[in-house]
Structure formats: structure tokens, C-alpha cells
């Protein structure tokens, strides 16, 4: 059964590595629903969060293939239940709409969103949350014709009390020491 999985990859920050990672999905005709890359807490190590809608078996195999990439240190996969995740969305609406009614103010208040900037012409609103939540606010605001809308890729953190990357790095260092 297909479901959403969050694939987390820790890798070197090298040119071309993004391509080397995405072709593993392309080759198996797996669509990437969302992808976020940035520096991780470890110096020089990048962290990818990739969301796919797939069966667990296929995801396991993809993770094995990802770990084969020389510049990939470690990859994990988790279901949505096993992670806390967020996306961020920005909405640009005409400022005029705020003058005419208090609806937007209520929407922002109810959604736990916030206003980042107000000019004469436009107002920029920010909301973090799950896709359904940011999408719901978009539908509401669109009554006033949202001029621009953007949603980020997902970022996620595991609920696991054990930090599996730290455990892995310890094991790896022991293995390297044993080989020396």
C-alpha cells in the first residue's frame, strides 16, 4: 500500500550530488512530492528531506540505493506518524482587502498565521503547518484574490528518542578504527 514516507539523507555538500540522488528516484519512476536541502547540525554535512508517496518495500530499496552513493553518509525513512514536520507558506494579498473588512484579520488570527509586511499595495502573510493547513488558509484568503502564494518543501524531525544518526556515526567510527 502506498503512503507518504519521509526520506532523510545526510550527505557531503558536493556539486552534483542532488542530481545523483534524484536520478535514483527517476530511474524507478517515483515522483518526489517535496524536497528540502540545507546544512545540518553537523559541520559540512547537508540534510535532505524528501517526501514520496510509495510502498514501504520500494522506499526501503530506494534508501539502500541512496546509501550506496559515495557522498551519502546515511539515509533513513519514516512514516508521517514517526515525525514532526512543518511547511511554511507565504501569501501576498491586496492591502485594500484589509481596509474593507475584518475577515482577513480573523483568518490570520484563527490560523495562527502572522503578517510579515504591509505596504499600500499588498500585505504578506506567513503561516507554518501541514500542507492541508496552509492550503486551507490559501482557500480562505483567495476570496480576496491572493496575488502570490508559495509553499516550502517539508522539513521534519523524528519523534524517536534515540538519535539514529549519532548512533550510526559511533558505529561507523568504531568500524573505521577496526579496519585501520
Amino acid at each position: 500500500m502506498k503512503q507518504e514516507f519521509n526520506i532523510t539523507i545526510f550527505s557531503e555538500n558536493h556539486i552534483g550530488l542532488l542530481n545523483r540522488i534524484t536520478i535514483i528516484f527517476t530511474r524507478r519512476k517515483i515522483n518526489i512530492e517535496s524536497l528540502t536541502v540545507s546544512a545540518s547540525a553537523l559541520k559540512g554535512i547537508s540534510k535532505f528531506t524528501i517526501v514520496v508517496n510509495e510502498t514501504q518495500d520500494r522506499v526501503m530499496k530506494v534508501v539502500s540505493q541512496l546509501e550506496k552513493v559515495v557522498d551519502v553518509m546515511k539515509a533513513f525513512y519514516h512514516t508521517n506518524d514517526e515525525m514532526i514536520f512543518q511547511e511554511i507558506a507565504l501569501y501576498k494579498v491586496p492591502t485594500e482587502a484589509l481596509y474593507n473588512t475584518d475577515k482577513i484579520e480573523k483568518m490570520v488570527r484563527n490560523a495562527g498565521a502572522r503578517i510579515l509586511e504591509i505596504t499600500r499595495e499588498y500585505t504578506v502573510i506567513e503561516k507554518t503547518g501541514h500542507k492541508e493547513e496552509t492550503q486551507a488558509l490559501f482557500e480562505q484568503l483567495n476570496e480576496f484574490h491572493v496575488m502570490q502564494f508559495i509553499r516550502s518543501g517539508r522539513i521534519a524531525i523524528t519523534r524517536d528518542p534515540i538519535e539514529r544518526l549519532s548512533e550510526f556515526l559511533k558505529e561507523r567510527d568504531a568500524m573505521f578504527d577496526a579496519l585501520d
Partner: peptide, 10 residues
């Protein structure tokens, strides 16, 4: 040695 690459496991 390459830190991101484990050629073979013991």
C-alpha cells in the same frame, strides 16, 4: 578512507 563511504562491513 572516505568518511561517507563504507566499502565493506565487517
Amino acid at each position: 578512507k572516505i568518511r561517507s563511504y563504507i566499502p565493506e562491513f565487517p
